[in-house]
Amino acid sequence: MTELLQIQDVRKTFGIRSSFLGRKKDLVAVEGISLRIPKGRTLGLVGESGSGKSTLANMVTGMLAPTSGQVLIDGQPVHDQKGKVALRGESGAQIVFQDPYSSLNPRMPVAQLLAEPLKVAPKVLMPEREQRVNELLDQVGLPRSARQKYPHEFSGGQRQRIVIARALARRPRLLVCDEPVSALDVSVQSQILNLLKDLQDELGLTYLFIGHGLESVGFMSDEIAVMYLGRIVEQGPAHQVLADPVHPYTQALISSSEAIPFHAGGTVELTGEIPSPLNPPSGCVFRTRCPLVTDICAEAVPALTPRSESRMAACHRR
């Protein structure tokens, strides 16, 4: 199978100045991540806020250039040597954002919103553009009468359909979904998740699906990668990772997603919060919250090593 997306040992740091004259400090947002997604498949990326998953997404869409390493879509690097975006339109990735309210310009009617990506070089000309807009509305299940309406006239779920339609306008093959349903109501979430699945079947899309909840990511993905503080701690086929997690962090995520009532003995596995990436712990970054921590965890960084044929984990425990 051919890989559509290849992320090769990507690292991203931001220079942060703590005070006006203070010395610059490197914040490591993403540390040496490698991932690949075969054509037509979905990779789910799970992590809490601060795990670096959005930074990674931004490097895939080209919004951020990696400090080192590179991102390839269909073998083509997303950024050129100077860090400028090299892939646009159908060859690049498009993104579906989390918040359907702020991702649509409130002063543009739907037809204009959907046509906008088509006005960027190589331009799609007028009659064809109109046709494409109608096609997009059909694809995401909105009536054509939506063309003249403004974003505020739609519910959250319908807005997210508009956002998806706009992302599809240039016929990209890779779609980055950055928590596309977490701002929506439960009953609408399932509509959008189903829509994304249908579109994938219909158009042969490849998804990088980002979420902080394991339920929806597990439902959508063929493969899952779990991120913590800029690193991948576990990776493997979705059903295997969810059924039999190796890394204590994945185990904790799963147990906090499982709704066992507290009065029936439901517990909280993880204490504390994700440490600041400005001051990451030595050794294993998860050790400050890990229930299974031992001495070696503070000394050596555990490498992401194969655990079985298709699975990897970064933990000192064997």
């Binding site: 991702s103 310009n105 543009m108 906008e116 990506p117 960027v120 706009r166």
Partner: peptide, 20 residues
Amino acid sequence: RQFIRAAQNFGVSGPTILLR
């Protein structure tokens, strides 16, 4: 706001984002 980021992502140029 994300709609500005979205436009940048489509490759819409700076002056166009300013105007439109």
